[in-house]
Design a protein around this nucleic acid. Structure first.
Lengths: 189, 189
DNA sequence: CAAAAAACTTGAAGTACTTCAAGAAATGGA
DNA sequence: TCCATTTCTTGAAGTACTTCAAGTTTTTTG
């Protein structure tokens, strides 16, 4: 829980009472590698903050193959954000890629937190604003770069991360097949 | 300006004094069709709310072709959100597709608004949270649907909108060439 | 430590798209 | 209302990828 609070305090100031209340409104758990934190079709009533470890957002295509659409490592939030906002069923699943320490907050508790602590409203406003910006850049990469350029770009932007998760998940995150990424890396393209 | 205020009031309550202050901190202008509201490489110190009309976000590819990555019609915000957040240079341009009435808010004034009026912090938190959710769905469509499915999906979700903007812009928004979309519509694929 | 499972590689064949070029149709401005 | 501009269409040729299938390497687990 300390990582979580420390992260929040990097963005907004909270007094002790507020910190206590914040801790009361969230829960922290360990999840094993491969464990599903939220399953597709389940009500997406919560989102996740990674204190330690790594999560991914999974989409099941019609053919039954899994597509990784997002990753989250330390200090990132992850969830099916639209389903969470609307309190509807998730179309994405959330899975742990490593043994992970995760802070979970429910919709109900998040609403209460932001109502009672204006600095948290501010924190989440900034958080989602940055996300919206990052998403625009991602579309930009997808629309203007070739598969090879996208991989090289990711390699320079997140060199350590690439070592941390299986290559076929990186491939689907970049919008290409595992086989093609393998060929790119081997210089066979 | 009345459309703008009415829109905000659909989400949060403001008293007269707050409404006055809000109006003071933004500006409303008309833009002609094709007019550029924010140019690539310009400091992205402002974002735009569409009171009437239609805007688009443009990316210039290396080949010099324009790619439309987002549209905004009445009651939507548009801008280079990451550059706005970081007060850096825009990598996208913003252009009016029709004669449009647009509310502009600068970074400085937005910061002041959300600090002084907590309900606006809340409004923008919800706004960006929905955007983050919508962006996840967009990636989902791009990664799981064929070009034809993406077009049909857009056609059922925004039937009126498709009539409103040139087809080649819809094509680039969907991540495909204008020629291919033309063939899809003609059933020649 | 061995066996099983997961992840990666390779080549061959296929395909969903792009690019180019040119003409036709629609729209907009004086 | 007419001319210029913008937008849309069409076909032919090309390509950046995908899919499949099989083998190899690496990692995980009892």
């Amino acid at each position: 829980m300390e990582e979580f609070v420390a992260h929040i305090l990097k963005f907004v100031l909270l007094n002790n009472e507020e910190i206590m209340f914040l801790k009361d409104m969230v829960s922290e758990q360990e999840f094993a590698k491969k464990e599903i934190l939220l399953a597709q079709n389940e009500k997406a009533d919560r989102i996740f903050f990674v204190s330690k470890g790594c999560l991914r957002l999974i989409l099941l295509s019609e053919k039954g193959t899994e597509i990784t659409t997002q990753f989250a490592i330390e200090n990132w939030w992850l969830g099916d954000m639209l389903a969470f906002y609307n309190e509807t069923e998730a179309v994405f699943s959330v899975q742990a890629l490593e043994k992970s320490k995760v802070v979970t907050v429910t919709k109900k508790n998040l609403d209460e937190l932001v109502s009672k602590i204006p600095q948290l409203e501010r924190y989440f406003r900034m958080c989602f604003q940055k996300t919206a910006g990052a998403d625009q850049r991602r579309i930009r990469y997808l629309f203007t770069m070739s598969a090879e350029e996208r991989f090289n770009n990711m390699n320079t932007m997140f060199p350590h991360f690439i070592q941390r998760v299986p290559q076929y998940m990186i491939a689907s995150y970049l919008g290409l097949s595992a086989e093609f990424l393998s060929k790119i890396r081997a210089g066979k393209v």
